[in-house]
Computed example of a mutant assay.
Amino acid sequence: MTTFAELHHGPAPLLLPNAWDHASARALAADGFPAIGTTSLGLAAAVGLPDGASATRDETLRLALALGSGPYLLSVDAEGGYSDDPDEVAEFARELVAVGAAGINLEDGLGSPALHAEKIAAVKAAAPGLFVNARTDTYWLGGAELDTRDRLDAYQRAGADAVFVPGLTEPRAIADLVKHLDLPLNILYSPAGPTVPRLADLGVRRVSLGSLLYRRALGAALETMTEIRQGRTPGGAVPSYGEVDALSRRGDAAHSDVTHSDTP
């Protein structure tokens, strides 16, 4: 089986969709994606908690437990590791490995790069096989673009397996960063930014979707209700009740479309 690290060195960039529950992960895997990430925003919104506030540690671990045995490689968005104590972040990483995760995404939130490097080193010491994608928020949060290379250099030295710069969309800056790095560069896909083939030409090795699929799903729900309210038939793909029911099951339990009703 291809390892998660090997997917970052294939003929094309790893296109990583991000799921927020069991059904979305299984649907994406069934569509041929060999690896699935989680979205911290999608998870937080689904359970009514704030994103980026270290409030969803337990929920993230429960989601990893639900997804870690799936037919795909799993990378978990763990915000900043849910602690400023590197040992506690390392313990969370060990728990992720125990439930089947292949990777972890750790963001610096424009905090101390030295502390973030300590977290990365602690995770690699505690869980050497866990693929660490070290994210810097210099472009995402703005105001510190000139600090990007210094931060990424520190994260490389700490043992990161890849680095992630969400918010970076300018092609020349991407290409320059690829040349500077010794590790795979992960870019967050933006509908307003370069296409996936263009990112591949620039040397990007991983393209993440972040919360885009979750936000699109919410948008589709609202559009559907608007169409219905205005007397029109909504368009778009709609999986059947049976298809979704099958995706929601953690095994291959037999079921039938005709034995269930989707009436609330």
Rank of each mutant, 00 (worst) to 15 (best):
L41A: 14
L202A: 02
R229D: 11
V132I: 00
L247M: 15
L218A: 09
V165C: 00
L96Q: 08
A127K: 01
D161R: 06
L63C: 05
E243Y: 09
E79D: 13
F33M: 10
L247C: 11
L213N: 11
A175D: 12
I187H: 09
H8F: 04
N105T: 08
T195S: 14
V238W: 04
A154H: 06
A78H: 01
G80V: 12
V47K: 03
D21K: 12
A126R: 05
A29I: 04
A125Y: 14
T263Q: 13
E91F: 11
D153Q: 03
L73C: 09
Y72I: 14
S240A: 13
A23K: 08
L247I: 09
L185E: 01
L96P: 15
A117I: 10
L41R: 04
A101N: 12
A175M: 06
T169I: 09
L185M: 02
T38M: 03
G129P: 07
L73G: 08
G242D: 13
P264E: 02
T195H: 08
A90Y: 15
L115T: 09
R198I: 07
V132P: 02
A158R: 04
A117Q: 10
G167V: 07
F164G: 03
D252Y: 15
A5H: 12
G81W: 08
S208Y: 05
A126C: 09
D257R: 11
P71Y: 04
D262P: 13
L115H: 14
V244C: 09
L202K: 06
L146V: 03
R198P: 07
N18V: 06
V97Y: 01
A25T: 06
L16M: 05
A46F: 07
W140L: 08
A5Q: 14
L74S: 11
Q156G: 04
F131E: 13
V97G: 05
G242Y: 05
P13L: 13
A237V: 13
V76I: 11
T224W: 02
A221N: 10
V97I: 08
